[in-house]
């Protein structure tokens, strides 16, 4: 369709007004600068290593601070847990050494005796006729027991020898109020 045959000539003239709609002065210079700046950034990212590209969006953000905080807490927790496990296993090894040095109960010959305690006058405890002592105290159960009660038992039985006393009052440098009770005693 030729423009000469255009039945709406005024429309074409009206549309010429649109050519006068121009952006603010300096706009095209700014646009060109923005485009070239973006292109230079894109080019720089092309040569950047992949880990750097991944790092860039999160660096300096709140997410980064939160992640760093979480990592610090995790490291502190791991450190504490490791220290606790190491110190516990060291104590257990020391205890094993102490018990391993004791004579076996079968060689001691514990007598079957009845004893009472001043803290529970009506209670009569029976010492086992024969203790099957297991030389691995780590498998036993640590039961808190007042030292006074334990001491009274040994005092009420002056005939018991040192070996029996040591069985009920195992040496412990860190916590003397705790004694080891074998599974056999616990079942009594």
């Amino acid at each position: 369709m030729n423009d000469e045959q255009d039945p709406h000539p005024n429309i074409a003239r009206l549309l010429e007004l649109k050519q006068r709609e121009t952006p603010p002065p300096g706009f095209h210079d700014r646009l060109r600068s923005r485009v070239m700046r973006s292109i230079r950034v894109e080019r720089a990212e092309e040569v950047r290593p992949w880990w750097s590209v991944l790092w860039l969006p999160v660096s300096g953000s709140r997410f980064m601070w939160a992640a760093n905080g979480l990592a610090a807490v995790g490291i502190a927790f791991l450190g504490t847990a490791t220290f606790h496990v190491l110190s516990t296993s060291a104590d257990a090894e020391a205890e094993v050494e102490v018990y391993a040095a004791l004579p076996l109960p079968a060689e001691v010959g514990i007598r079957n005796t009845l004893v009472t305690t001043p803290h529970a006058p009506g209670l009569v405890a029976q010492a086992p006729p024969r203790l099957e002592y297991r030389p691995l105290p780590a498998q036993g159960i640590l039961v808190p027991m007042p030292a006074a009660l334990h001491g009274s038992v040994t005092q009420r039985d002056p005939n018991a020898d040192d070996t029996a006393r040591q069985l009920f009052r195992p040496p412990s440098r860190k916590n003397p109020a705790f004694i080891l009770v074998s599974e056999r005693i616990e079942g009594r």
Partner: peptide, 8 residues
Amino acid sequence: RQQLQGLL
């Protein structure tokens, strides 16, 4: 153009 003629 026909549409613009009608609108304007």
